[in-house]
Design a protein around this nucleic acid. Structure first.
Lengths: 275, 275
DNA sequence: AGTAATTACGAGGTACGTAACAATC
DNA sequence: GATTGTTACGTACCTCGTAATTACT
């Protein structure tokens, strides 16, 4: 029977030009490779080399064989690669969310329900998330609304509400509540990777200059600057109140969010998700 | 290393459904096949089966693996097939001729010059032969003229001239020579596989009814009928004169043929043809 | 009982490496 | 003399078949 091994050896020889060099690259003794190529010829019942006493070169058949061997070996490697990828995907739940906060409770729930699964999560905009329900980029998607698709199983995850954090000296710090428009035009601090929160506030506060800082810098700037920033009830519960800041609720309906976890019904069973 | 062997075993299992049946088809013991599939899974580091104590079924990975294995194995078989075909072609000279007679002397010449070659010859019409010089269906072509292509090497092979054979009682049997038109309208005997001779005489004798008989029947009918037929100087030399027949030369220029053997110059060297 | 799959164990074959040889540069 | 390829020989590993075990129908 023809062996993939031998085809790889043939390719190596074609690349190296001599049996010696190829044998070394293959971590094989030269006589072993010589015999292996003889077996290959016998197996194919076709001579692949022209041999002088001291020299061995691919003949016309050999050149053709190399072409084919390349394809066969590549396909075999591709097979292995694709299988490993699929196997990994079988043990991974890809979660896409429109915002970070709902993942804080959802991901541990999934981990507990599917202890043998790897969970990978990403923050993506709403367009990407809705498309992904069709192309299966994500098995589970967190949206700020519940799509009406009958193939989907949707569960309400909880709510999130947005707040300003203002330095106590801020003129509006004593208000019971505010609207986004009340601070429009000022400069504000923003965390990165806020998902759909970014577009929401940018649209409602078009004249505001947002300074996006990584989390570490953000915390420092909240502490040592008077720039207003945002928190939500969920982030407050997770991280506690920011130091030396007044937290003021925002009344706009567009920042009162209800999250829904959605996945295909048949997947819900396989993933054992108690949605 | 992944083995083609194992992929074929996987395909057999997919076809048969049980290890036992597959093992039998593979002329292998069932434990051997079981272990081989375990090795395949280990090699791919991916489970391919779902196992109950008594039952083994392809899982999702297994199904995908079968798809790929099919392609890989097919390509490998295709490789072998193509190589064998090329190797055979390397040792075969395909000769196309417009008529049988020139092959009688040409084929032995080639055999003598290339003792390690197989010679295959076919009679084809002129269109096919001329095209074959481009598509390399034939390495060597016998034509009734010498193409002017500079890439071609052409050698004159010899001449062939057509004769009527008539029963002695035929009204024209005492003529020194005849024209094709002289017998047009009668019924004539014809051998099969005459190559371009068929079209020549049919065009020159449009009102003649030709009875095409295989060689054995043809000889009998020449002997026991009074139907006129053809011979050529070459066939006379090879087979002797027909019994109880008068042989009359035909004067038409279109039946005075000169044959040329033509092949590509570079091939002439490789085939060692002393053209 | 019969079929089907895995594990255990002994045997045979196959491919490897080392060594010896031949030939070319 | 150094490099390259083939042949010879002994060994080690690997895969096979038989047999035993377990489980399902």
């Amino acid at each position: 029977m023809l062996e993939l091994n031998q085809l790889e050896q043939l390719l190596t020889f074609a690349r190296c030009g001599t049996l010696s060099a190829a044998a070394e690259e293959l971590h094989l003794s030269q006589p072993a490779l010589s015999r292996s190529m003889q077996r290959l010829e016998a197996e194919l019942s076709v001579p692949l080399f022209t041999r002088q006493k001291n020299r061995i070169v691919l003949n016309e058949n050999g050149e053709l064989a190399v072409e084919y061997a390349r394809k066969v070996v590549e396909d075999a490697l591709d097979m292995k690669e694709k299988l490993v990828a699929q196997e990994r995907a079988r043990h991974t739940i890809f979660v896409g969310s429109c915002a970070p906060a709902p993942l804080w409770t959802l991901l541990p729930q999934i981990s507990a329900a599917c202890p043998d699964m790897t969970i990978t999560s990403e923050i993506r905009n709403l367009d990407r998330l809705q498309k992904s329900l069709e192309d299966h980029t994500y098995q589970l998607v967190v949206l700020p609304f519940a799509p009406k698709d009958p193939k989907l199983l949707c569960r309400k995850l909880g709510e999130e509400h947005l707040y300003f954090t203002l330095p106590p000296a801020h003129p509006l710090a004593n208000r019971k509540s505010l609207h986004l428009a009340d601070l429009d035009g000022e400069t504000m601090l923003l965390r990165p990777n806020l998902g759909f929160w970014g577009p929401i506030v940018k649209q409602a506060m078009p004249r505001t200059k947002f300074l996006v800082q990584d989390n570490e810098a953000f915390n420092e700037l909240v502490k040592f600057s008077i720039l207003p920033s945002f928190v939500t009830d969920l982030s407050l519960r997770r991280e506690g109140p920011p130091p030396d800041r007044v937290v003021v609720p925002i009344d706009d309906p567009c920042v009162q969010i209800t999250y829904y976890a959605c996945c295909e019904k048949k997947l819900a069973k396989r993933l054992k998700l108690g949605l």
